[in-house]
Simulated scan of single mutants.
Amino acid sequence: MKYIKFLATLILTVAIFYALNNKLGAIPPLGKFLNPYTGIWQNEKDDSTTGELILNGLKNDVTVHYDEHLIPHVFAKNDLDLYRAQGYITAKHRLWQMEFQTYAAAGRLSEIIGKGTLNYDREERRRGMGYGAEQAILKMQDDAETLSYLEAYRDGVNDYINSLIPKDYPVEYKLLDYSPKPWTIKKTALLLMYMTKDLASGDDDFEYTNAMQLFGKDRFDLLFPDFFDINDPVIPKDTDWSFIDTPITPTPAEQTSIDSLTIELTEPHPD
């Protein structure tokens, strides 16, 4: 009888250890997730926005000012330092989002989420997002200055990633049970492809043209205004910029671009 109890206890102990250290469907490993030293409890703290930090590779001092909305403003004495600091700051506040979007663009979400995103991954691969990123890199490599900025941004992101230990990982990594990977220039290109798709992958030109012809321009402008009056800008117009002691680049002279000219069609264009 005592051997049966021993075996039952042993099997139960092994089962508990297995359950606490492995994902069960969409549930993260509860042992790791609830660990008081490295789990979710370590994420209940605010990001530091004060103090000094030493980043290897900077040529001069860089100042990051956080306003009352916690929006960082980066001031550097040269462009390479600016891009490196920008990479670090962006990763500090958006690392999981940045990397997750590169997986989405590359059609690799199933590596993280599982079979539920296979169709999405197939669609993005057929769309050619990865190919587009590779072609963008080839074009970027034609210009040494552009390439140097991409490398500086990459190094800044990796500076932040390398400063992390598992307890510091953003909570999303702990929920999905994986860790951040080194940032690359290709990830930057994939992120640009993702934003291109998000902002310019489709249009409503035909629909809007037909609507304007049907309702007239005045009613069309009422239904589809360029900007809604109730929207507030991210940075209010009355923002106090007195803390800036760096000369601001003058605003270029206004020029009406050819694609902003208003042309009223008598009927929808057949093409």
Rank of each mutant, 00 (worst) to 15 (best):
L176V: 01
E207M: 09
T209K: 13
D226R: 15
T256H: 11
D198A: 10
L223N: 03
N158V: 02
P247M: 08
A200Y: 12
S260V: 08
D198E: 13
K174F: 01
I230C: 05
E267W: 07
F215A: 09
D226T: 12
D168P: 00
D238Q: 11
S148E: 04
S257Q: 12
P247V: 04
A144V: 02
D159K: 02
I258W: 12
K186F: 14
T188D: 06
A253V: 09
F215V: 15
T188F: 05
N210Y: 12
I248T: 10
L199F: 08
L176W: 06
L222P: 00
W241Q: 03
L176Y: 07
A144P: 01
Y194S: 07
P233E: 03
D245C: 04
M195W: 15
S260D: 11
L190N: 08
D226A: 10
Y208H: 12
T146M: 03
S179H: 07
P182L: 05
P252I: 10
E267C: 04
I248K: 14
F206R: 15
V171Q: 02
K237G: 09
D198P: 01
R219T: 14
W241K: 06
I185G: 07
K217W: 09
D232M: 12
E172W: 03
L265G: 02
I263W: 05
P236M: 05
E254F: 13
D155R: 05
R219Y: 07
F224E: 08
L199A: 07
Y178K: 02
D229R: 13
D159N: 05
T146P: 00
N210F: 11
L191Q: 11
F243D: 03
L199W: 08
S163D: 02
F220S: 05
M212W: 06
